[in-house]
Every structure is written in structure tokens, then in C-alpha cells.
Write a protein that binds this DNA or RNA. Structure first.
Length: 487
RNA sequence: GCCGCCUUAGCUCAGUUGGUUAGAGCGCCAGAUUGUGGCUCUGGAGGUCCCCCGUUCGAUCCGGGGAGGCGGUACCA
């Protein structure tokens, strides 16, 4: 039966189709978060899906692996272009390209899909939506604090209940200071230490200790080579990451742990300034804390780094607990525009993983609304199709979603169709109704509720629950009463 | 990338110690019910048993290779 010449109907690996319910949740989040950003004075910007690959930075396609990390293709002039993997790199390109004419500091927000050519995982796709806000051209810690405050407000606007999310803040300068004081000078060893620290929440101190030292063997049997620190240095790193989970007291602990390295001290001063600004912005330690274990990526960031963690205790379809963890992150990146212009431009920003946030909220039951279908006008008598369209048009003119059934099936199947669309009502107009100048309106919501108590089909059909025949002129008011009752 | 598990109907999965017509539940379509969604009953459609090669009289089942899926791990700008 399967013809090998026919294509198999399937979506590419790591890409998914999203239906009305998912889209409604996601669009609501985008609307709410965009409104917060605009209230803070950020302007909208949309850049193309494709950028020239060199503008995206690190992932220069070469002959061997042109698609590593990004989806890239060669234009007809032989130039490599690639789908953007985030919204920050395109912003840096835009800012550099238009620097002379932009009002500075330049504040913009953007949202849209980004693409990553990597192995998909649970809840992790190769195409997903981000919502991003950045300030380009301000080195002030208040710029970081403002971004953090907007992220906190954005979470609330998106529907995350108070106390269900926390913003965790750290500084790369602190981490660099830590390395200096722990005697880590080698660049690759630095990266290994950062990677190890980044896994603290997943592996715990013992796992991280192994990764800081010789290495770790995981349960699948795969071995991860460690950073090769000696025991004293490893303990020093662990002590640093264990410093508090608050703001003021954490800062003093951190400043002790760093022990006077110049870069570390600078990081402490930055965080102190951010703390003061957050207080004046009304963001307390219940919403944003300093957490020395936050690392965020590896190159790229030059100062403060932030991460939004969701604390909702959620469960999957099988009832197993799911930790959504990070739903967004960001930080200060002072060198990104300089890649284009040579001029160092301080910048800071934050990005929400919108798809992930929507999934988390839905899994937590905060966004449990099904997408409602339209009122369905039953195509009862083929010779009256024009009347059915007039009826649908009348409802649409009143702002009520409505459609005429356009399939070829009988009435029973049409009722089933309306039920599956989660339609609030069906409109039935047959010979009797036309003769009497009436329409029959069936309240499907009421029927859905009543059907739970009915066991006998004959009785169910005889009762015609929620069904009323009204004068044709009363159609819209009857439908609206049903809609209002359901709302 | 590395490690492990898996692949049989649209979905979830049985099963054949290698033998002739490969099953269930759910879902779908239809009828019981000339104009009515749920329940119940009845009937129906739907399968190259992931692909290729090998062993065999014979492979969905055994062996080798490949692809795809899932999970872990690495990477994640």
C-alpha cells in the first residue's frame, strides 16, 4: 500500500506543528510581555530570519561542517547565510549598521522564532520563539537592573503566579575573579570550571566536585573529563558557589570569597549598584536574588548574567514531576557590536523562551483553556445553502465566530463535528423552521454538561437538551445568551 | 558527538519457540436512531510486522549493516 515514491507525511526532526490552543497561549504571553517592554520605553524591532553567517559570529560555516549549530545555506552569490539562532546577534548587527543614526542608548524589544541545528530533547525543539529586550549603549548597572525588573514584571504579566519564578543574578567578573584566586589561568581550564559550576543545580555539589577534579562517570556509562583542579582549589570554587541565596548578605559572603582580586571586586561593586537600583525599581529579594552558581553560556557575556527560573511544581501527562527550570536568560555583553565597528559598545539584555514558558504554564494548569470552535450552522438542506450563509453572516456581523458546515455528511456527523470543534452552539434550520420563520438553536455546552447524567440514548434524544426553537429575528440574542452563560 | 533502550494498524501495545488468513483496546467510518453530539450494541475500513543484505525450503521473528524514535551524557552562542 505504501508507495515508496510518495513522500512520508511527517515534520522534520525537532520541528513541531502547533494548533490553536498552543498558539493562543503563546500569543497571550507575547502580548503581555511586549506591553511591559513598551511601558519601559523599548521600541519594537523586527529583523529578518536570515543573517549573513559572519554576522552571527562564532559559527562560521566551513567546507567541512557548514551547518554546525545553525541552519545555513549559500546564496546565489556564494555568500553563506544562516537562520538566526537568537535575537541578540541580529540586534548587534542592526545596531552596528545604523549606529550613526540611532538615538543612544538604543532600547528595543523583539520577538520571533529562532532556529538551532542541534539535537532536540524533551521540550526542546530546533525552532522556538524568543522575546527579547536590550539596551545598547549604556554601561550603567541601572541598565542591567532595569532589564531584570522588566523580566520580573514580564513573568507576572505572562501569567506566572507571584513567587513561582525567581531571577538569579551573577557576574562574569566575579567568576573571573574566582578563577584568579583559585589559580586558574589556562583558558580551557577556565571553561571547564565554568561548565562544572553550571551543572550545580542538576548534579549537586558532589557531582560538581568530580567535574572540577578528574572527571565524572554518569549512569549511562559516559565519562566526562574534569577541569583538573586540585582539591583545595575545587573546594574554593564550591565555597564560592555555595554563598547564600539572597542579596545583601550574599554580596558580603561573595566579597569575602573572592578575596581582593581586582576583577572580582569590580563585580561586587556592579552587583551592589544593581541591588540599589533594583530596590528603587521595587524588585525585592523575593523576585530577584544573587546566585553565584549562574553561569549562562561561555564566551559572549562580559558582566552581569541573569537567569529566570520557574519554580512551579509541574507534572507531565503521566503525572511525573517536571522541572522546567530556566525560561529565560541574559546579561551584559559589551563586545558584540565591536565585532562590526571596532568600537566597544556596552549592552545588556534579556530573552524569554516563550515556547518554553507557554509549555510550562500549560503543564502547570495555568493556561488550561481549550480553543473554542465557531457556532456551526448545520447544512441540513442543500437547496437552502444561501440561507445558511446568510445566517452565518448575520452572526459574524454581530462579532460571533460562525461557519456553515461545508462537508458532505449527514446531520449526525455534523453535530459530532460541532462537538469536536468545541462549538458553543449549533443552528438547525430545516423545512419546519423555514415554514414557521424560526431557527432551532442547540446549546452544545449545556448538552455536554447534561449528557454526563444521561444513560439512555432514547431519552437523551427525546429530551433534546439545551435546544430551543426561536423566531428567526431572535437568533443573535439567543446565541449571545448561550455565549454569555458559558463565559 | 558518545552510551543505553526501542521500532508490529492513526494511537498505545500484545504475539508468532522461524510455517499457510498477524491480534486487542482506543480512535476513525457506517448502521441500530427519515432531523440531533454522549452511552450501549452491530458491522466496516485500515498493516511491505522500519529499511537493506545474509542464513534458511520458508524470516515480522535469527545474524550483520543502515535509518528513525526515546532516554542519559556532552555542547548550547
Amino acid at each position: 500500500m505504501t508507495d515508496p515514491s510518495r513522500p512520508e507525511a511527517r515534520s522534520p526532526r525537532g520541528f513541531i506543528d502547533r494548533r490553536a490552543r498552543d498558539l493562543a497561549a503563546e500569543r497571550a504571553i507575547l502580548r503581555a510581555v511586549s506591553a511591559v517592554y513598551e511601558r519601559y520605553g523599548f521600541e519594537a524591532l523586527e529583523t529578518p530570519a536570515f543573517e549573513y553567517a559572519d554576522a552571527l559570529g562564532k559559527f562560521l560555516p566551513d567546507a567541512d561542517r557548514p551547518n554546525e549549530g545553525v541552519f545555513a545555506l549559500q546564496d546565489d552569490d556564494e555568500q553563506w547565510m544562516a537562520l538566526r539562532y537568537d535575537l541578540t546577534a541580529p540586534l548587534a548587527r542592526f545596531a552596528a549598521q545604523n549606529w550613526e543614526t540611532l538615538p543612544k542608548p538604543f532600547r528595543r524589544y523583539a520577538f520571533g522564532p529562532v532556529w538551532r541545528n542541534e539535537k532536540p530533547g524533551p521540550g526542546r525543539y530546533r525552532e522556538f520563539v524568543q522575546c527579547d529586550a536590550d539596551t545598547v549603549g549604556s554601561a550603567r548597572p541601572e541598565a542591567d537592573a532595569e532589564i531584570i525588573a522588566m523580566a520580573a514584571e514580564g513573568l507576572v504579566a505572562a501569567g506566572v503566579p507571584d513567587g513561582a519564578a525567581i531571577l538569579k543574578i551573577n557576574s562574569r567578573k566575579l567568576l573571573n575573579g574566582l578563577m584568579a584566586s583559585a589559580g586558574v589561568a589556562d583558558e580551557s581550564q577556565k571553561l571547564a570550571v565554568l561548565r562544572a559550576v553550571d551543572k550545580l543545580d542538576r548534579l549537586g555539589p558532589d557531582g560538581v566536585r568530580l567535574l572540577l577534579g578528574e572527571g565524572r562517570l554518569d549512569e549511562s556509562g559516559a565519562f566526562t573529563k574534569g577541569a583538573g583542579l586540585n582539591a583545595a582549589a575545587a573546594e574554593r570554587v564550591l565555597a564560592f558557589t555555595a554563598a547564600g541565596a539572597g542579596r545583601g548578605e550574599t554580596l558580603s559572603q561573595l566579597s569575602n570569597a573572592i578575596g581582593g582580586s581586582p576583577e572580582g571586586d569590580e563585580g561586587v561593586r556592579d552587583l551592589e549598584a544593581i541591588d540599589r537600583a533594583l530596590i528603587s525599581l521595587g524588585v525585592g529579594p523575593d523576585r530577584a536574588i544573587f546566585d553565584p552558581s549562574v553561569v549562562r553560556g561561555l564566551e559572549y557575556y562580559t558582566g552581569a548574567v541573569f537567569e529566570a527560573e520557574l519554580l512551579l511544581g509541574t507534572t507531565d501527562e503521566k503525572g511525573l514531576p517536571v522541572r522546567f527550570g530556566s525560561v529565560g536568560g541574559g546579561g551584559r555583553y559589551d563586545d558584540l557590536v565591536a565585532r562590526f565597528t571596532g568600537e566597544r559598545v556596552p549592552a545588556t539584555g534579556f530573552s524569554f523562551g516563550v515556547s518554553r514558558l507557554a509549555a510550562a504554564l500549560r503543564a502547570a494548569g495555568r493556561q488550561g483553556l481549550e480553543a473554542r470552535g465557531p457556532v456551526v450552522v448545520i447544512a441540513f438542506d442543500q437547496s437552502h445553502m444561501a440561507d445558511y450563509f446568510a445566517i452565518a453572516g448575520e452572526m459574524r456581523a454581530a462579532g460571533i465566530p460562525a461557519e456553515v458546515y461545508l462537508g458532505a455528511s449527514g446531520m449526525k456527523a455534523q453535530m459530532k463535528y460541532a462537538d469536536r470543534r468545541l462549538s458553543p452552539a449549533a443552528v438547525i434550520v430545516g423545512e419546519d423552521e423555514f415554514a414557521a420563520g424560526t431557527v432551532t438553536v442547540k446549546d452544545l455546552d449545556l448538552g455536554r454538561a447534561l449528557s454526563r447524567g444521561v444513560t439512555d440514548n432514547a431519552a437523551w434524544r427525546a429530551e433534546r437538551p439545551g435546544q430551543a426553537t426561536v423566531p428567526r429575528a431572535d437568533l443573535v440574542t439567543t446565541i449571545r445568551a448561550i455565549l454569555d452563560a458559558g463565559a
